Amino acid sequence: MRPGHIGYVGPDLGVDRHAPAVAMLSVGLDAPLELHTGAHGVIRTRSSFAPARTPHRIVATAGWILALFVEPAGIPAIADEMNRTAGPFGLHHRRERELIRLCAAERPDPDRIYRLAITGEARPADPRIEAVANAIRAHPARTFRADRVAAGLGLSTTHFLRLFAEQYGTTFRGYQRWVRMSRTIRDAITGTDLTRSAIDAGFATPSHFSETFRDLIGLPATTMLRAGIRFDLGE
């Protein structure tokens, strides 16, 4: 887990259909994946990209996978690195082989994997939007209303929401959900009770957190936390 991205290398955890609030890159490390979509059916590919809020399901045909969730603020979209498309989905990352090689290391380096997945020159970031995103990350439990934030920036609500979606690749509300979910998991794996972590991060109830996690990740949070995963917080 890092500011701006969360990655997983390991066996398929049996996720259901889900729609992450940020972009997602998936790579089959030992064999092709099955990308289960709605309109485009099941696509067999070694790597796939799904934009934020795009419902899909990844199934490993064999072996391990890489799942990388990325906030695209200030960097080229992963979509630019895919060789083919199927509707909103990208297929066959240009550096597929190198990603597989890095993930095969005894202790994969999360930062090297991330840098390889995202290449190219950074896009200029709007400092107003970046400041809002920083505030959301610093205060996940706070409720940020789009109309009030927009007024504080001297923008219309519609214009602010469009700028935020363009820079962060997801909706203003969706980004707040993602930050709260990420903070909850981070606190839980550092020793805080999961229920306490969810409430501290701004969820109204533990069930609200559970529903959000399943919607964004595709499985119960308790399943992930009990899967024996070694977490690397970069600290």
Rank of each mutant, 00 (worst) to 15 (best):
G174Q: 06
R148C: 00
T222L: 13
P124Q: 12
I65E: 12
E96R: 08
Y168D: 06
D30F: 00
Y168K: 08
S182L: 07
F89E: 01
E96I: 01
T212V: 05
R53I: 06
H92S: 11
V9A: 08
E71H: 03
P124L: 11
M24V: 15
D111E: 15
I217K: 03
A201I: 01
A122P: 12
F213Q: 01
F209S: 02
R196Q: 15
A104G: 14
T170C: 15
L102K: 03
I58T: 14
A135Q: 13
F164Y: 12
A62D: 15
D193I: 06
I58F: 05
V132S: 03
A60N: 10
I43M: 09
T222D: 13
H92K: 02
I113T: 09
T222A: 15
P206N: 07
Y114Q: 09
I58M: 15
E96N: 14
A141F: 04
A138N: 08
A165E: 15
G7K: 03
S47I: 03
A135Y: 04
A39K: 13
R112Y: 00
D187G: 00
E34D: 13
A21T: 03
G120E: 09
D187S: 14
G74N: 11
L155N: 04
L153N: 09
A39P: 10
R226A: 15
A122N: 13
G234E: 10
R214W: 04
T85F: 09
H40C: 05
F69G: 00
A86W: 04
F209A: 08
I129W: 05
Q176C: 04
A125I: 11
F231N: 08
A227H: 03
F164T: 01
P220C: 06
T45Y: 01
A19R: 12
P110T: 09
W64Q: 14
G4L: 02
E130D: 13
Q167H: 13
T170Q: 07
M224P: 01
V22A: 09
A138W: 06
P108H: 06
G154I: 04
I113L: 13
R115M: 12
T222P: 02
A52P: 07
V27C: 10
D16W: 05
I78C: 09
A141T: 00
S47P: 12
H92T: 07
P108Q: 07
E96A: 02
R226M: 10
T37K: 10
D200E: 12
A204Y: 02
G10N: 10
I113H: 04
E211C: 05
E34T: 11
R148P: 05
I58G: 01
E96T: 02
E81F: 11
S210H: 10
R173W: 03
R145Q: 13
R53S: 14
A73T: 12
E130C: 07
V22N: 05
T158E: 15
A23P: 01
T119V: 11
L219H: 12
A31L: 10
D111A: 12
Q176V: 03
R84T: 02
T54F: 01
R107F: 07
P220G: 06
D193F: 09
